[in-house]
Design a protein around this nucleic acid. Structure first.
Lengths: 189, 189
DNA sequence: ATTAAACGTTGCCCTATGTCAATGATCCGA
DNA sequence: TCGGATCATTGACATAGGGCAACGTTTAAT
């Protein structure tokens, strides 16, 4: 098994080396170029993805062509379009690499089969959902009660990798403001 | 078991009458008055709650005393402060009934014990998390890309019960705008 | 190495929303 | 039933952020 995925499982679950080795074959490794898509809007999502190196984002595009980014997955994180993965309906969001990335993917059938049959994977899936849900709850509060300056300051303090590794345009789309506004806010700091 | 909870479990899982009856004793029923708290900020959350009738909300209060409401649980829904329940840390949000409500509660130790030992509860917990996570994802996109008028219109179309059963003040706190702005927007419709 | 495309910054103007105050309506406690 | 508290609405004004244009910088393709 890839060392980073192995570490991920070991940190989150009491799982034996032997069991890990039975899981390894389900994960396929692939390298994506910057801006390459893993999923396009309208497709049915069929994989869960683990980022070994690089970064991918989940975003949607509205009728006016404006992008909104919901989530970044840096190294050591899982990410996928859960809405489509679970419902098997066409996705309303896309998955794209924002820099060259090495990604491990597991097919949804294999993944949910393991969730049902392998207690360690079941526990880890619950932790993924719990953690993701808690994170998005906090972002809801952030959108409700903070202005743009406060949000930028929060990123600087808590998620500096976003500011250092991603473009202004993409960061602005994550914060829900325009790149022009983000430029102005950065000038004020 | 309470008929509404029984219906909830039966709709979401193949579970026998017999198994349901073993689950029933874990749930305690209580009626709360309007504005009564189930959890106050700073307390550690120890229960998961199911709404039989009425409505409860989860909200936080910032330093200026402004309330932001993250989630409403109407009849037939589970709700709790997952961040505190999972981490056993003091909650940064509160749970309050917004009208007189009948609530079933289950202690977190019992709940997670059942998640570990009862496959139907494990599956249902996953569905709760999946559904909650997907819903909050959509709200993230909503906050990023819609203005206040669009959000009010969306509520009218998709969640009219919120508009008909709750006060303007509470609705505004859910939408992330002030009650004055909500009044103006309603006047424009 | 060069050129085109994309990104970032800044200026100016407009709109949406917040803030505060005043007034009317509704709810709740005695 | 009545009076106080709370909520809702509206007016006037202030501020944050959006929209658009222009220009400079950086990136990517050839």
């Amino acid at each position: 098994m890839h060392p980073k995925l192995k570490l991920y499982f070991e940190e989150r679950s009491q799982i034996s080396e032997e069991r890990l080795n039975t899981l390894a074959p389900y994960f396929k490794e692939r390298t994506y170029r910057k801006n390459e898509y893993l999923l396009r809007e309208g497709e049915v999502c069929k994989h869960n993805y683990f980022v070994v190196s690089g970064c991918m984002r989940l975003f949607s595009v509205n009728k006016e062509g404006v992008e909104n980014t919901r989530y970044f997955a840096f190294e050591g994180k899982f990410g996928t379009c859960f809405t489509s993965l679970i419902s098997r309906q066409p996705a309303f969001e896309s998955i794209q690499c924002v820099e060259e990335s090495t990604i491990l993917s597991i097919h949804r059938d294999d993944f949910y089969q393991l969730v049902e049959t392998e207690p360690a994977v079941n526990a880890i899936y619950r932790k993924i959902l719990e953690s993701a849900y808690i994170t998005t709850q906090k972002r809801i509060y952030d959108f409700q009660g903070s202005d743009s300056l406060q949000r930028v300051k929060w990123l600087m303090a808590h998620q500096p990798t976003i500011l250092s590794r991603l473009s202004n345009k993409i960061i602005a789309s994550y914060l829900g403001i325009t790149p022009y506004t983000l430029s102005r806010i950065k000038a004020k700091l």
